[in-house]
């Protein structure tokens, strides 16, 4: 176990820029990847909780918060937002070769970037609102050999130990691991702050490091659309909602509903 001096604890928060969840999303006809150009991009909502949790840990016991994002050039807006919330510095992993990366490739690039930072604690949001896979935090932890404390509804750091409440179907487990470790947080763990204008102005002066594949020591063939373990072969627009069936209850309504549910394999 490594003793971590909380004064110098380094927290890396991973954030993702996603299409605004209010927006209508489409795929690019050329390669069936998400069209990120035509929709407003925002910080993944779950990652706002991750940034807030990191800032609260820092406010309670000091240390440094670095925000890390992999994404196209406009993802700097999301890094800026985290900096204006109060994070100290940013790292932007950006490279044309990363376009179309799946979760496995994303975890490789993020793991390399985190390794270079030397984090004591890595915090993720538990999923992104676009892909909704929830696997990247676990994959990154595996690649780095870090204990993974996923789906946390509370996070506490005490000396060289992190303790979280891990949300389960029946309640939560209290789990504990030595630092360095990786945590993912669930929605509503806290109430993320809005950036203040002072924070926005201060963020202008904060450093953002830009890293490409070569800087990370990642080969082009390991990431991107070509290396993806699955491809979207075809996509079709969701068909318009079909008209519902109206059953007039002449005494046999219950049977009609049961028959319908049975036909749909609900019962």
């Amino acid at each position: 176990m490594r003793e971590v001096d909380s004064e110098t604890m380094k927290i890396v928060v991973c954030v993702k820029q996603v299409p605004d969840s209010w927006a209508e999303k489409t795929l690019r006809p050329s390669d069936n990847t998400l069209d990120r150009e035509s929709v407003d991009a925002v910080m993944n909502e779950l990652d706002e909780y991750a940034v807030e949790e990191a800032l609260r840990l820092q406010e309670a016991q000091g240390g440094e918060v670095v925000v890390l994002s992999m994404g196209p050039s406009q993802a700097t807006d999301t890094i800026r937002k985290a900096l204006s919330m109060g994070a100290d510095a940013g790292v932007h992993v950006v490279d044309d070769g990363l376009h179309g990366s799946d979760a496995v490739a994303t975890s490789l690039a993020l793991a390399k970037a985190i390794e270079a930072q030397g984090a004591d604690l890595v915090i993720f949001g538990s999923e992104s609102t676009d892909a909704r896979m929830s696997v990247v935090p676990a994959m990154v932890a595996e690649r780095l050999g870090l204990p993974q404390l996923t789906f946390s509804s509370s996070v506490a750091v005490d000396g060289g130990t992190v303790r979280t409440n891990r949300v389960t179907e029946y309640g939560y487990d209290v789990v504990e691991a030595p630092l360095p470790a990786l945590v993912s947080v669930v929605e509503k763990i806290n109430e993320p702050r809005y950036p203040s204008f002072k924070g926005i102005m201060a963020a202008k002066k904060k450093p953002v490091q830009t890293l490409g594949l070569a800087d990370l020591g990642v080969a082009a063939g390991e990431v991107g659309l070509g290396a993806a373990w699955s491809v979207v072969a075809e996509a079709a627009a969701r068909p318009p909602k079909a008209k519902g069936t109206i059953v007039a209850d002449d005494g046999s309504g219950g049977v009609a509903i049961a028959d319908y549910l049975s036909a749909q394999k609900f019962i």
């Binding site: 800026r80 809005y194 926005i200 202008k204």
Partner: peptide, 13 residues
């Protein structure tokens, strides 16, 4: 850029 960021924050709120 900074005033635009502020605008977005208030829009979201």
């Amino acid at each position: 850029a900074e005033h635009e960021q502020l605008r977005k924050v208030v829009e979201e709120f």
